[in-house]
């Protein structure tokens, strides 16, 4: 069979439009993941054993169950307990809540690599604990955790392809639809792969730039 560049050319606008959904899902997922992950990390490090246990359980569960299963659980099972989410919201929530577990662990690793002497010195100087986090711990943790966080964002872009399963018209789903019309899976899926690759490539390059900017000295 001949590789049809015509098919690619004709369908490229639709694929690019669909890529916007891919970006929307992964960026919103990342936003939820950062906020919820920070809270989770704080809970994980708290002195209260019940809170800590709950956070450990949460992280273990969300890291231990395939995201596809979580997505199906959110989309198909939640309505039975009275929480009927539209597909896009379910997908964003599932990716965000799952990714938060990983973000929490990344941040925990980063926080624990900051020498504890700094915290002790801050307490000795009477710096309140909010300022300690805001001025001393978080800026350093972000710098240390940055490579892993960019990695996580790239993972989220790839993982957003799972949202096609609940019927969201993102890149993978639209590729499936176009393949159904044109019977040219090779061309369409390879184009989709190239688009995913381009998005991730831009992300990893900007990640490296940000890392450079955050570096001191």
């Amino acid at each position: 069979m001949n590789f049809s560049f015509d098919t690619i050319w004709h369908n490229l606008p639709y694929l690019l439009a669909a890529a916007r959904w891919t970006i929307l899902i992964s960026v919103s997922g990342m936003a939820i993941s950062l906020v919820w992950g920070t809270a989770l990390c704080a809970t994980r490090l708290s002195a209260n054993p019940f809170l800590r246990g709950a956070a450990v359980l949460y992280i273990s569960f969300f890291r231990g169950v395939p995201l596809l299963v979580q997505l199906l659980l959110f989309y198909y099972a939640l309505p039975y307990v009275g929480l009927d989410l539209p597909a896009v919201q379910a997908a964003i929530l599932a990716t965000g809540l799952c990714s938060a577990a990983y973000t929490a662990e990344i941040l925990r690793g980063a926080l624990q690599s900051i020498p504890s002497g700094q915290t002790e010195a801050a307490y000795a100087l009477g710096i309140p604990s909010f300022s300690l986090w805001r001025r001393i711990l978080v800026p350093q943790a972000v710098r240390i955790g940055m490579p892993s966080l960019v990695n996580e964002l790239i993972l989220l872009v790839k993982v957003s392809s799972l949202a096609s399963v609940v019927g969201i018209g993102e890149l993978t789903r639209i590729s499936q639809n176009i393949t159904g019309e044109t019977y040219r899976p090779l061309e369409i899926y390879i184009t989709a792969a190239v688009i995913y690759f381009a998005i991730n490539w831009v992300l990893s390059i900007s990640g490296r730039l940000i890392e450079k900017k955050l570096q001191i000295g």
């Binding site: 069979m1 790239i154 790839k158 993982v159 392809s161 899976p185 899926y189 390879i190």
Partner: peptide
Amino acid sequence: RGTPFMIQLFILYYGGPYI
């Protein structure tokens, strides 16, 4: 590493027969 597993699976399973 830059493309989703699902897309790789589709290329292999649906695109494979064409080659």
